[in-house]
């Protein structure tokens, strides 16, 4: 009897492993990703719906991500937004943190203070899922006509001036680990994560992708838009591992 029970337990434990070995990309997306991620669209249309979002929308993943980054991130997922996807859940006004001037500020709390909880895929699974994600292209129209002008180059210093002083992006986004605000996704990996055409289109008008998102339309001049995207690509080539 004991042996029977053991074999039953073993069957229950091992069978998902065996099954997952044979899963294709769309099946993995449906069974392991769709619970938190929106794979079909549309994006939240009201602020109430936006606050219900648990994870980034993926229905335009094929327009957004660079495939090679997806493959590596899915095997070793780490947090990209210091305050999480939904910062109303992760900001607390008490207890306060003390600033340099002795002033008190709101703090991050809860889940974002711990490592990201996310599915970790094996290398073959990550390849399959990346392939499936790259087929989700609901934003084709928004990226058509977007092209990076590589002649609009900037140095890291010039780019930082644009990001900090001219458009104020750094209030919410970090341009190196720990340097910048918390509520937006980190910018120092943006060039590795995102397709340049997506960056151009998203920065130009975030609302086109996500109608109620809290990133404002910065009314970025066309030339500066090109410079910012070239800067983000340049910035992502820096090695920030030491600073982490």
């Amino acid at each position: 009897m004991k042996r029977f029970l053991l074999s039953m337990v073993a069957a229950v434990v091992i069978s998902p492993v065996l099954a997952s070995a044979g899963e294709d990309g769309p099946t993995i997306l449906d069974t392991r990703c769709a619970y938190c991620h929106n794979l079909k669209g549309p994006a939240p249309q009201t602020i109430h719906d936006l606050w219900k979002r648990d994870a980034p929308d993926l229905f335009y993943a094929g327009n957004k991500f660079r495939r090679e980054w997806l493959v590596s991130w899915l095997q070793k997922p780490v947090r990209i937004r210091p305050a999480g996807v939904n910062y109303l859940r992760t900001i607390n006004s008490t207890p306060h943190q003390e600033g340099k001037d002795g002033k008190k500020y709101d703090v991050l709390w809860g889940a974002v203070l711990k490592p990201l909880v996310h599915e970790t895929l094996t290398a073959p699974e990550a390849e399959l899922v990346a392939d499936s994600l790259m087929k989700l292209r609901a934003g084709d129209e928004l990226v058509s006509g977007m092209m990076v002008d590589k002649s609009k180059t900037v140095t890291l210093d010039q780019g930082e001036v644009l990001i900090d002083k001219v458009y104020g992006c750094q209030s919410c986004h970090q341009i190196e680990p720990g340097y910048g605000g918390y509520t937006g996704p980190e910018l120092y990996t943006a060039g590795r994560r995102l397709q340049p055409e997506f960056m151009l289109s998203y920065i130009k008008r975030p609302k086109n992708w996500d109608p109620k998102i809290w990133m404002p339309n910065g009314n970025v001049k066309p030339e500066d838009l090109q410079k910012i995207v070239n800067y983000l690509i340049l910035l992502s080539k820096e090695n920030f591992d030491e600073a982490r």
């Binding site: 900001i91 002033k103 500020y105 709101d106 209030s171 919410c172 509520t183």
Partner: peptide, 14 residues
Amino acid sequence: GMHGKGDGVNVPAM
């Protein structure tokens, strides 16, 4: 800030 006191979570970085 949560209560509008100019003390938002991003402020130390600004």
